[in-house]
Nucleic acid binder design. Structure first.
Lengths: 226, 226
DNA sequence: ACGGTAGGTGTACGGCGTACACCCGTCAAG
DNA sequence: CTTGACGGGTGTACGCCGTACACCTACCGT
């Protein structure tokens, strides 16, 4: 009855990971500190270290949890649609967790081996290609060609940033137009093209699928001539 | 004559940026702190703030310096080889500064507008496509298709990591083989394939160019049918 | 009844980015 | 020649970070 003595649910690695992901989702990865995670769990910072070795291992765990969210390969589909579905599922996951690409990249570079879930993901992706009749060295090429798209992100260089507060020292539009004529032309064309759509006038999802399909088509052509 | 009173070369934005890049090159971006940069310059940390507004602005400056290293477009070449050369030049720059992709990605996500040098790079890249006869909306697609490859990195997920000290808790090879059969098959095939080559047996440069060419071929086909 | 152990606590250290007050040399205006 | 503003380097201090280390406590099998 006494609220003061009421004990919290016990900590666990999963609970730590989950709140860490939640915190990153709402505040970005910069807002993720051991101290904040602990606070969110109503616990003292050092308590976390009974469940994760250190912050990097926590980040690895978060990655693994996310990669685990990606749909398993669909059994009844040709390689092309199976790959397509899987990649789009990965992308959906990443859109739910925008901080993830950076963390995945950083941790991948720092570790000797990718995390287990990533290994499993890559392995089963290779399996799809193999089952689709790709010889093993063509699969190797294919994995490189897919590059970052394999994991659903393609390093979008111009996302919709119109919601951002503009840089205070940003040059005025007319100067932009003079200095970057081609960029301006393209931006204007894209904006006019789909003025009915709210937002940037650039459908990122469509562009992602366009690029993905172009890549898959290229691979298909390679497979046929091999 | 007295060494003690010998005055250092005066600080400047350029000198700060240059030593920052040098420090990052040799120690990775994690080893880059205002305090260390100051120390390398024989100066007190706060002195840097007379030349850069804050650390993020310093990172922006570093990016701009690097992007400025990329070769300008070759005037006398068809669009395909012009793009190819430029992208490969970008890649060369990034191989010199392995920490750069992560920083570029992080800063791009944080800023409303890319840094000026990046804008100029993108603008002139668009210019190449336009000069090659691409209609503006096809250029738009092309830029998305190129994705991260535009900047020379394609998020290499499996680089050569054989030099890394193996994870102490890494599963033994036979367990790897059992758990990730396709990955193992591929790794073995690649290793055997080019056993004459020292290193991982996977020529990253060749793979990058392979993927780049496949993409450019796809774009060329689109251009012809447009 | 008792020792071990798993899990939460408290304190402390060194490093970080950077706000703010200061100080000193140079140089233009009076 | 004096003066005062100002650009550029300094010193101190604050609040945050990750985490080492000692501790305390509640539960467990013997």
């Amino acid at each position: 009855m006494e609220i003061g003595t009421q004990q919290r649910a016990p900590l666990s690695r999963k609970r730590v990971l989950d709140t860490a992901v939640a915190l990153a989702d709402e505040g970005g990865v910069d807002a993720l500190s051991m101290r904040r995670i602990a606070q969110a769990l109503g616990v003292v910072p050092m308590a976390l270290y009974k469940h994760v070795a250190h912050k990097n291992e926590l980040l690895d765990g978060m990655i693994d949890a996310l990669v685990g969210e990606i749909d398993p390969p669909s059994a009844d589909a040709d390689w092309k649609t199976a790959v397509r579905r899987r990649v789009l599922s990965a992308r959906r996951m990443l859109l739910r967790h925008p901080w993830a690409p950076a963390v995945i990249e950083a941790r991948m570079k720092a570790r000797a081996t990718p995390t287990p879930a990533v290994l499993a993901y890559l392995d089963s992706m290779i399996g799809i290609f193999r089952a689709g009749g790709f010889p093993v060295d063509l699969v190797h090429h294919a994995m490189h060609v897919m590059g970052s798209r394999l994991l659903g992100f393609s390093q979008e260089l111009f996302e919709d940033r119109t919601d951002r507060a503009p840089d205070p020292d940003a040059p005025p539009p007319e100067e932009m137009a003079a200095r970057y004529p081609h960029l301006t032309e393209l931006a204007r064309a894209v904006a006019h093209d789909e003025e009915s759509v709210v937002g940037s006038g650039c459908d990122d999802q469509a562009e992602f699928e366009f690029a993905l399909d172009l890549t898959l088509d290229g691979l298909e052509r390679l497979l046929r001539t091999a």
